[in-house]
Design a binder for these strands. Structure first.
Length: 545
RNA sequence: GCGCCCGUAGCUCAGGGGACAGAGCAGCGGACUUCUAAUCCGCUGGACGCAGGUUCGAAUCCUGCCGGGCGCGCCA
């Protein structure tokens, strides 16, 4: 059990003993100011009404009543806080346990329902751009954190390989393809075509593989084959890029399979039967406004084709059918208005609305030379994730993406990112790890070999470092519960600071064996936590820098 | 206009209803004969957007306003 939990138990017992009061929700926290002890609680203040006494007086009595071997000292401070200081033995016992636990330190026992996290889900109509990158980094890190918190997680990528955008993309490729043979491929509206350079690349690969055969077959058939080829090309490209930043998926789910299996049709029929649809102007509408949407939405267009939401509802029904009961959808913030209609469809099928649990990731504002770079996929002026990775490197990119709350708009200054890449906070954290590795090389010892050592009295920097290390499991749990990945980078930077401060003041490899062993143990513990923490973000913990 | 999100140091951002609001970058000044100076220490820097409310106590919770972002297609 954590120290917070143990202290809460002690206080509960003390309140019972001294005041015959049963306390609930005892809040124990780590104070910002080290002068306020290792832990503090506001129970006397928060429960002033229950105690019907002066908070300072209550705190004084509780502080006196609390008696446990792991508490070295408890005292009243300020308006009625109780500050606790742990015994060095108790702290050290935890550090020893931390080292023994190794890579499992910070991980919880399996608990909770299996969870499915859907993220990225970028359409295969082009390369991943910097906005997708943020969703990929956030989603994958969240998945890792959830797993550490004990959940079983399935990562899924849903991709749209049918529909209007795909048709447009296939036409775009076809036009380039035709150009390679100095022929024309007639299209409706040239302005709506995709324009990136990669379109030409796809066309070139297409021509290399199939030659000019698409001029001889039926246009619709040709286009369908070109669409298959082009979407596969893009998905391969996307998978390769995801691999670069160490993002993996358990399942790639394609929209087309829902058409092929008749799933979309079945879902629409079910919605019709349930009475939540109606026909108007030749289209089938979902009465989504009954379920909190601003207005009703079209499911089946008057030309018989489906809107995007139709297969997506079927997809979520499929998720439910596969037995998932806890899901998270990670979407770009530009999809905020889309959620209510999807939820309406799900509820219309009799599935609980909270089955659709959405986490919106704010878009990335790209700056170049102080100017915002506006981009659009179709116009082809995107900054791709690959370009960014080429320029600043995988660890920097992954770390930088999740350093800030996914809820805040993030501006990514490309020039600054390149120029300052060696000042990026990720190196600060990694450097602490590399420094420790260097010490163990020098000591010809392995962090795993560090046995039990007595704490003696810990120096201030040693104690502060130790307390920070012991906070790691709580940070992981909290990040999982709040789905705030950025709490980890924030924590890791604080931890690295504590280590660098310790390192500057105390030499590890001293002659005094007891001191040396104690400091090596702290190094081993720090190395372990840094590695585990960086691992949750998909960032390397280098042995040398 | 309606809905969701966001306003904290010059910039990028942390901040579990509590004890003097923090970090990094930028600026200024120090510290390498010593386990990696990609580091450390100090200084400068703030109406926590504004106004009310709840509370013993609000950057944090509630309401209203102001400012910004996104959404409001038979696009995805």
């Amino acid at each position: 059990m954590s120290f917070e939990g143990k202290i809460a138990d002690e206080i509960r017992a003390a309140a019972r003993e001294a005041f015959d009061v049963e306390l609930e929700n005892i809040h124990v926290e780590r104070p910002n100011d080290p002068d306020h002890g290792d832990f503090a609680t506001n129970v006397a203040l928060a429960n002033a009404k229950v105690f019907k006494r002066n908070p300072r007086e209550v705190a004084g009595t509780l502080a006196e009543t609390v008696a446990a071997p792991f508490i070295a000292n408890s005292e009243v401070a300020g308006p009625g806080f109780i500050n606790f200081r742990l015994s060095s033995d108790a702290v050290w016992e935890e550090i020893a346990s931390l080292i023994r636990t190794g890579e499992r330190y910070g991980r919880s026992e399996p608990s909770g329902e299996p969870m499915q996290i859907e993220f990225v889900s970028a359409n295969p109509t082009g390369p991943m751009h910097v906005g997708h990158g943020r969703q990929a980094a956030y989603g994958d890190s969240l998945a890792r954190i959830m797993e550490a918190a004990g959940r079983k997680v399935s990562r899924e990528y849903y991709f749209n390989d049918g529909g209007n955008q795909i048709r447009l993309f296939a036409e775009s490729v076809a036009v380039r393809y035709a150009e390679l043979f100095e022929r024309e491929w007639p299209v409706g509206d040239p302005d709506s075509l995709y324009k990136g350079e990669y379109v030409e690349e796809v066309a070139r690969d297409l021509s290399e593989k199939y030659g000019d055969r698409f001029f001889d077959v039926d246009r619709g058939e040709a286009l369908s084959e070109i669409a298959d080829f082009s979407t596969r090309w893009c998905m391969d490209d996307i998978r390769r890029t995801l691999g670069r930043i160490r993002v993996r998926f358990d399942n790639f789910f394609n929209e087309k399979s829902l058409y092929d299996s008749g799933g979309v049709e079945k879902t629409i029929e079910k919605l019709k039967t349930s009475g939540h649809t109606y026909e108007e102007d030749g289209a089938v509408w979902l009465a989504s406004s009954e379920f909190g949407d601003d207005k009703d939405r079209v499911l089946v267009k008057s030309d018989g084709s489906y809107t995007y939401v139709a297969p997506d509802i079927a997809y979520h029904e499929d998720k439910w059918g596969r037995g998932f009961r806890a899901t998270v959808n990670i979407l770009g913030a530009d999809h905020a208005g889309y959620t209510p209609r999807l939820r309406a469809g799900i509820v219309g099928l009799g599935i609980p609305g909270d089955f659709l649990d959405v986490e919106l990731v704010r878009l990335v504002k790209l700056m170049r030379e102080g100017e915002e770079v506006k981009f659009s996929k179709r116009a082809g002026n995107v900054v791709t994730l690959d370009e960014l990775l080429d320029e600043v490197g995988e660890d920097v990119v992954r770390y930088f993406y999740v350093r800030f709350s996914h809820k805040t708009e993030m501006s990514f200054d490309l020039d600054l990112a390149i120029k300052q890449s060696d000042e990026n906070p990720v190196f600060y954290v990694q450097y602490a790890h590399a420094r420790i590795a260097s010490i163990f090389r020098r000591a010809e010892a392995s962090p795993e070999d560090v046995g039990e050592t007595t704490p003696d009295d810990l120096a201030s920097e040693e104690r502060i470092l130790a307390m920070e290390l012991l906070d790691f499991p709580r940070i992981v749990k909290n990040a999982a519960a709040k789905r705030e990945v950025h709490l980890l980078p924030t924590y890791l930077e604080t931890l690295a600071t504590r280590y660098h401060q310790f390192y500057t003041i105390h030499k590890v490899l001293v002659d005094d064996e007891e001191v040396r062993n104690r400091r090596l143990a702290l190094c081993a513990a720090t190395k372990n936590v840094l590695k585990n923490g960086l691992g949750l973000l998909g960032v390397h913990a280098p042995e040398r820098m």
